[in-house]
Design a protein around this nucleic acid. Structure first.
Length: 197
DNA sequence: TCGTAGATTTTCT
DNA sequence: GAAAATCTACGAC
């Protein structure tokens, strides 16, 4: 059985949290059954010092205000037609967050397959931020909830994994920030999104 | 298999 | 009106 992780798990610097999140489980309880995926890829967003973050040199807005909230809050964000999942980090008032980029399906295969479409390869279900939230059926409804609250929570994974790090992906013209090695992913896992530096 | 362009919606200027 | 922490289709090799 899956249990929400201890709250103090989120009470660390954002870079540390991003690294610690790799290997943990995302659990989504639904009436149809359990959806579980193991996180294999994350990216840290370092608020005011990070040109790529939504919160860079901006006051809180409707979109980003939850980033200034308590560590462990759920920050969902819509990009084009897709939803992205984030974990808020840092104490209240510091806009840090970790983007969950990819995960490996653990339970609820039938449900995920249905959410993503029957014809796709299994590795295409969750190997990207937008795909992942669609496979797990995560929507803006969870904006502002906490990652230890059901039905959507993070559970501690049983295994320790080998973690690699590298430059982030998909942030375009953010000048020097593009090269910060703030992306963490599990070594040799085929569910890590295919983009490489 | 790889690279490029278009999609489509919310938020901000 | 423009841009965005992306995905998918489609044409070239």
């Amino acid at each position: 059985m899956y249990k929400p992780i201890r709250k103090s798990f989120f009470d660390v610097p954002v870079l540390e949290l991003a690294e610690n999140l790799v290997g943990q489980y995302i659990v989504h309880e639904q009436t149809e059954g359990l959806l579980v995926a193991r996180i294999v890829e994350t990216e840290a967003y370092h608020g005011p010092e990070d040109r790529a973050a939504h919160s860079f040199s901006n006051r809180p807005t409707k979109r980003t205000e939850i980033m200034f909230g308590a560590a462990g809050s759920v920050y969902t964000y819509q990009m084009h037609t897709h939803t992205l999942m984030n974990v808020v980090a840092g104490p209240i008032g510091t806009p840090h967050a970790v983007l969950i980029r990819a995960a490996e399906p653990v339970e609820g295969f039938e449900q995920m397959k249905e959410n993503r479409g029957n014809k796709l390869k299994m590795t295409d279900w969750t190997n990207g931020p937008g795909k992942l939230s669609k496979a797990l059926d995560v929507t803006m409804d969870y904006y502002g909830q906490h990652w230890t609250d059901k039905p959507l929570f993070i559970a501690e994974g049983p295994e320790t994994v080998e973690i690699m790090k590298g430059p982030r992906v998909g942030i375009g013209n953010s000048e020097e920030a593009v090269y910060y090695p703030w992306r963490f992913f599990e070594k040799d896992n085929s569910y890590v999104s295919k983009y490489r530096a």
